[in-house]
Simulated scan of single mutants.
Amino acid sequence: MDGVTATGVRAHARIVARPDGRGGTALPVLDGEGPLALRRTRAAGGEARVLVVGAMSGPLGGDRLALTASVAEGARLHVGSAAATIALPGQTKAEARYDVRLDVADDAELRWLPEQLISAGGSDLYVTTHAELTAGARLVLREEQVLGRSGEEPGRLTSRLTVRIAGRTVLDQELACGPGAPGGWDGPAVLAGQRAVGQLVVVRPEFAQEPVRAQALGECAALIPLAGPAALLSAVAPDALRLRRLLDEALARFD
């Protein structure tokens, strides 16, 4: 259950996708709480589509938010969000957390394509995304972070992204930015003064036989194969618009 305590909001949203027996995908569980409202939208082919709608401001300092999505064998699910998520300072100086857990079974596909996460000045957010896939699962996962609104210094943002396939970790990376983060985050080896950073992870069983070729995509993005049937694009940009353009161009290579 969701609730509000002296240290912030507690909320957990859940999505479960299963084949409907008619070539489509059913959503037997679509349960949003607090600031994480879930809305089913028009399906496309056999794919079910869900939007995460921000029903409250946040995450704020002290909030504990979680979202889990499980895609059963043979199901196809597309999850997006209605607008950017903005991490804001709260009444407490405590760190906020937003934890995402994704499970995808054999012969199932998840497209996880939310809008940007914006780290507003004075905020402190730790966000984790953990994807657990079986050997025959398919995944497209986009993650975008923007440091500060227009003309604003960012808050502190720590982001950890983990992808496991058939019980083996193929990606586990963490990036901390903003006030109090380890030194060097804004230097030439990390963001180099840019204010938007993003990742695109694509998992496809056929990559086991035909791995993606490592290559630079312009000056600010790189595509690399992972140690499994997966590929990672990492990109930085001056702003959210140019970051999205880079990620969209990369995704078009796989669609």
Rank of each mutant, 00 (worst) to 15 (best):
residue 64 R to Y: 00
residue 52 V to H: 02
residue 62 G to N: 10
residue 47 E to W: 12
residue 62 G to V: 10
residue 41 T to C: 12
residue 39 R to F: 00
residue 53 V to W: 02
residue 45 G to D: 11
residue 65 L to P: 08
residue 60 L to G: 02
residue 33 E to C: 09
residue 59 P to E: 06
residue 44 A to I: 14
residue 29 V to I: 15
residue 65 L to H: 07
residue 56 M to S: 12
residue 53 V to G: 02
residue 54 G to S: 12
residue 63 D to K: 03
residue 30 L to V: 04
residue 53 V to L: 10
residue 54 G to K: 03
residue 57 S to Y: 02
residue 43 A to C: 09
residue 60 L to A: 15
residue 32 G to N: 01
residue 50 V to H: 07
residue 52 V to W: 01
residue 43 A to N: 11
residue 49 R to H: 14
residue 41 T to D: 05
residue 37 A to C: 11
residue 32 G to W: 01
residue 53 V to K: 06
residue 42 R to C: 03
residue 46 G to Y: 09
residue 40 R to W: 02
residue 58 G to D: 07
residue 29 V to P: 03
residue 49 R to A: 13
residue 30 L to S: 05
residue 38 L to F: 05
residue 28 P to M: 09
residue 31 D to A: 15
residue 28 P to A: 08
residue 58 G to F: 06
residue 38 L to S: 08
residue 61 G to P: 08
residue 35 P to K: 02
residue 52 V to K: 02
residue 36 L to H: 14
residue 41 T to S: 14
residue 55 A to W: 06
residue 49 R to K: 10
residue 55 A to H: 10
residue 60 L to F: 02
residue 56 M to H: 13
residue 50 V to S: 08
residue 55 A to N: 11
residue 52 V to D: 01
residue 40 R to D: 01
residue 41 T to H: 06
residue 60 L to Q: 12
residue 65 L to Q: 08
residue 28 P to K: 09
residue 46 G to S: 11
residue 31 D to C: 03
residue 61 G to S: 12
residue 32 G to H: 01
residue 27 L to C: 10
residue 61 G to F: 06
residue 31 D to E: 15
residue 45 G to L: 14
residue 38 L to T: 05
residue 53 V to Q: 04
residue 39 R to G: 01
residue 40 R to S: 14
